[in-house]
Design a protein around this nucleic acid. Structure first.
Lengths: 289, 289
DNA sequence: ACAAAAGTGTTCCAAGTACACCCATGT
DNA sequence: ACATGGGTGTACTTGGAACACTTTTGT
C-alpha cells in the first residue's frame, strides 16, 4: 500500500477517539445435517438440518439460546476472530464458511449500538460440541400475500422458524416483505415472534436462504456430507434443505458430474447395497470464467 | 423485543467503553450505464458501464479517487447513513441499492482499524453529480492459472480493472485466487496494483461480480435503464456488463417476459423505428417461493 | 442504393420432468 | 414373500444456441 509523505505526517497527528464507534461482533450460524437413526431395520436414517445454539450466560438475554459469537478483538482479522471464537467456545475447527451479511439495526442490541458481521458455517461433524445444543430446523411458510399495485407489487411471506430438540422447542415467526414499485425495491425481514436472543432468528433465517440459493449453482452441499456417501444420502440432503421431494432418476443424472464413484459399497440392511461416491471438486472447472 | 428484569438491571450497569471498537464506514459503489453518442448518424450510442468516484480532500490518500463513503453516525441505521452520505456528498437520491460485503482487513486503512460496510448502488441518471467524476469501467482478464492438485484445484485469475475518463486513467490489477482442497475452500481477492484510495478497487470489483451474477436470475438490470427503452438498448446493457455479445433473436425471446411493450416508437435515424418497452415488474411472480 | 438497426422463423441440441420398470438384500 | 432402497430406460417438453432471412428508415 502506497503511503505518501503527507499521509505519514497526517497519520502521526491522527487520533480516532473523536469519532463515535459502534461495537462489532462476529456471529456464526453453524449448520449440519444430522442422521436420525430409524427403528425399522430396512429404513435409512432420516436427515435433519440442524443449527448449533449456545445458552447465554450473561445479560442481555441471559438464559436464552443464541448463535455463537463474540465481540471482536482488533488484533484479528474478522474471519480469524470468528474462527477463534468458534474454536474456543464450542471446539469446532473444520468447516466451510462464508460471510453472510452485516446486521446493524439500531435497536438490535439493548446495550448499545452493536454491528454483527454474520457468517454461515457448514460442517459434517456428527459429534456433540461444547457449551450448547444442536437444534432441528423446521421452516414452514404459513402465509403468503401478494398485492399487485400500480407499477409493481408487494409480497409478504410469513414463516415459522422452529428450532427444537429433545429438551426444548423455540418458535420464531419471521415476516419477509418484498416491495417493488418502479425502481424502488425494498426487502424487509422482520421478527414478529422471537424466542432466541437478539435478532439471531433473522440471521439464521438468512443463512438458510443463502444455503438454499447456493445449492442450485454451487457444490456447497458437500460440506455437509461425509467424505463418502451414497447418492440417496446426497438426495436426502438436498431434500431436507430445499424442503421438497426430488425424483430419483433425474437427480442422479443432474448430480452425476459433481460426484465420483468409489469402488466401495455400503453394507445394506434389508435392501440392495449402494455404491459409495465422493465429491468431484473439479466438476465445474469448465464453467468458471 | 423482550427485556427481562435482570436485563434491565444489567443494562443500567453496563458500560461499553472497556471494549476496543473499530471505526466503521459505509461506502457506496455507484454504477450507471452511460450513452456515448456516436458521430455516425446511423449508429446507436455506445453504452459504457461507469462508476462515480470522488477525489479525496484529506489524508490518507489525499488527492486520490475513492468511492463515496463516510464514517457512520451512530444515530442512523447503516443504510440510512449511506443514503445520507450519498445525498449530501454527490446529490444522488434515486437508485437501487443492496449491501455488498463488509471489508475488515486489518491494514486496509492506515489510520486505524476501519471496517467498511460496502453497498452497491445502481442508478439510471445521465446527469453529472457533485464532487466527483464518472469513470468508464473496463475489466479484462489477463491471466488464468489452473492447477489441479490432489483432491481439488487452485485457480488464479488476474484482472485489469481500468477506470478512465477524459481526464485520467486509473489502472488497477486484481488477483483472485480460488483454492479448493477437500472441504477447505478459500477465495482471496488481492489488489496487486492500486491507483485509487484504500482497497476500493476490490470493493468495486466485487460490486461488478455481484452485478454480473445477479443479471442472470433477477431483473436488477432495469435499475440501470430509463423508464422506456428499446430492446436493443436492453441488450447493449447486458452486453456491456457481461462483456460479451449476445444473439438478437435469442435475446428477445429470453427477455420477453421481463418487459411490456408500449405503444410508442423511438424516432429512428437512418434505420427502422423501434418499439419502446417498459419493465414488467411482475414477470417473476410465479417463480417466487 | 445502402448501411444500420428492427424484428421473425427454423433447426438443432441439451437439460429438465414424469413415469415405468427391474434388481438386490435381510428378515 | 415382501418391504425397502438401488438403479436404468424412455418419451415428452422446454429452453438455449446458431443462423438465415425480411423489413424499415435517413441520407
Amino acid at each position: 500500500m502506497k503511503i505518501s509523505k503527507e499521509d505519514k505526517q497526517f497519520l502521526e497527528l491522527y487520533s480516532d477517539s473523536e469519532y463515535d464507534k459502534p461495537s462489532v461482533t462476529v456471529d456464526a450460524v453453524i449448520l449440519r445435517i444430522r442422521n436420525e437413526e430409524s427403528k425399522n431395520y430396512r429404513k435409512l436414517p432420516e436427515k435433519k438440518l440442524q443449527v448449533f445454539l449456545t445458552k447465554r450466560q450473561y445479560s442481555p438475554f441471559k438464559g436464552d439460546f443464541a448463535i455463537v459469537g463474540t465481540f471482536i478483538d482488533l488484533q484479528y482479522e474478522l474471519s480469524d476472530a470468528m474462527k477463534l471464537c468458534v474454536k474456543n467456545k464450542v471446539g469446532l475447527t473444520n468447516y466451510y464458511y462464508e460471510q453472510l451479511f452485516t446486521f446493524g439495526e439500531k435497536r438490535r442490541d439493548p446495550r448499545t449500538r452493536v454491528l454483527s458481521v454474520g457468517y454461515m458455517l457448514l460442517t459434517n461433524t456428527q459429534e456433540q460440541l461444547r457449551n450448547g445444543e444442536w437444534f432441528d430446523i423446521e421452516v414452514q411458510k404459513v402465509e403468503t400475500n401478494i398485492k399487485e399495485i400500480q407499477d409493481g407489487f408487494e409480497i409478504k411471506n410469513v414463516y415459522n422458524l422452529v428450532l427444537k430438540n429433545e429438551n426444548q422447542e423455540l418458535k420464531n415467526i419471521i415476516e419477509v416483505s418484498n416491495k417493488k414499485v418502479g425502481l424502488e425495491e425494498t426487502k424487509i425481514v422482520k421478527i414478529t415472534e422471537n424466542n432466541i436472543a437478539f435478532d439471531h432468528a433473522k440471521i439464521i433465517f438468512m443463512a438458510l436462504e443463502r444455503l438454499k440459493n447456493k445449492l442450485e449453482y454451487t457444490d456447497i452441499i458437500f460440506n455437509l456430507l461425509p467424505n463418502e456417501f451414497t447418492l440417496t444420502e446426497l438426495k436426502q440432503c438436498y431434500e431436507v434443505i430445499l424442503n421438497e421431494k426430488l425424483l430419483d432418476a433425474n437427480f442422479r443424472r443432474k448430480t452425476a458430474k459433481m460426484v465420483r464413484p468409489t469402488s466401495k459399497y455400503e453394507l445394506a440392511k434389508g435392501h440392495r447395497t449402494s455404491q459409495l461416491f465422493t465429491h468431484n471438486p473439479n466438476w465445474n472447472l469448465n464453467n468458471l470464467d
